[in-house]
Amino acid sequence: MLIRPAVISVLALVAAAILALPARSMAADRPAVDLALLLAVDISGSIDPDEARLQREGYARAIADPAVVKAITGGIHGRIAIAYFEWADSYTQTPLLDWTLVADQAGADAVARRLLAVPITTARRTSISGAIRHAIPRFADLPFAPLRRVLDISGDGPNNDGEPVDLARDAALAAGIAINGLPIMNGRPNTWGFPVLPDLDRYYEGCVIGGPGAFVVVAEGFETFGVAVRRKLILEIAATPAWPLPPAGPRVIRAQTSGGYDKGCDIGERQSREFWRRRFDQ
Rank of each mutant, 00 (worst) to 15 (best):
I8T: 09
A17Q: 12
A17H: 07
I18Q: 10
A27D: 12
A28T: 12
D29N: 08
D29H: 12
A32N: 14
D34K: 13
A36M: 12
L38S: 15
I43E: 15
S46H: 01
I47A: 09
I47F: 01
I47N: 03
A52F: 06
R53P: 03
I63W: 01
P66L: 05
V68R: 00
V69S: 10
I76C: 13
G78P: 02
G78L: 11
A83Q: 02
A88D: 04
P95I: 07
L97C: 06
W99A: 11
L101Y: 12
V102Q: 00
A103P: 05
Q105I: 14
Q105Y: 05
G107D: 02
A108W: 14
A108E: 01
D109Q: 12
A112G: 07
A112E: 05
R114M: 09
T121L: 14
T126N: 05
G130I: 01
H134S: 11
L142F: 05
L142E: 04
A145Y: 09
A145I: 03
P146V: 04
L147A: 06
R148F: 08
R149W: 02
I153H: 06
S154W: 05
G155V: 01
D156R: 00
N160P: 03
N160R: 11
D161T: 01
D161P: 07
D161M: 15
G162L: 07
D166H: 10
D166C: 10
D170V: 02
A172M: 11
A172F: 01
I177G: 00
I177C: 01
A178L: 02
G181K: 00
P183H: 01
N186M: 04
W192Y: 11
F194C: 09
P198G: 05
D199A: 07
Y204V: 09
G206Q: 12
V208Y: 00
G210Q: 05
G213D: 02
G213S: 04
G213L: 08
A214I: 09
A214P: 05
F215K: 15
V218M: 08
A219M: 04
F222C: 03
F222A: 04
F225Q: 04
A228K: 01
K232F: 10
L235Y: 11
I237N: 08
A238M: 05
A239L: 02
A239D: 14
P241L: 13
W243P: 05
P246Q: 13
P247S: 12
P250N: 09
V252K: 11
A255K: 11
A255C: 07
A255E: 03
S258C: 08
G259C: 07
D262F: 15
K263I: 05
K263L: 13
I267S: 04
S272E: 06
R273T: 10
E274N: 13
R277G: 12
R279Q: 15
F280K: 15
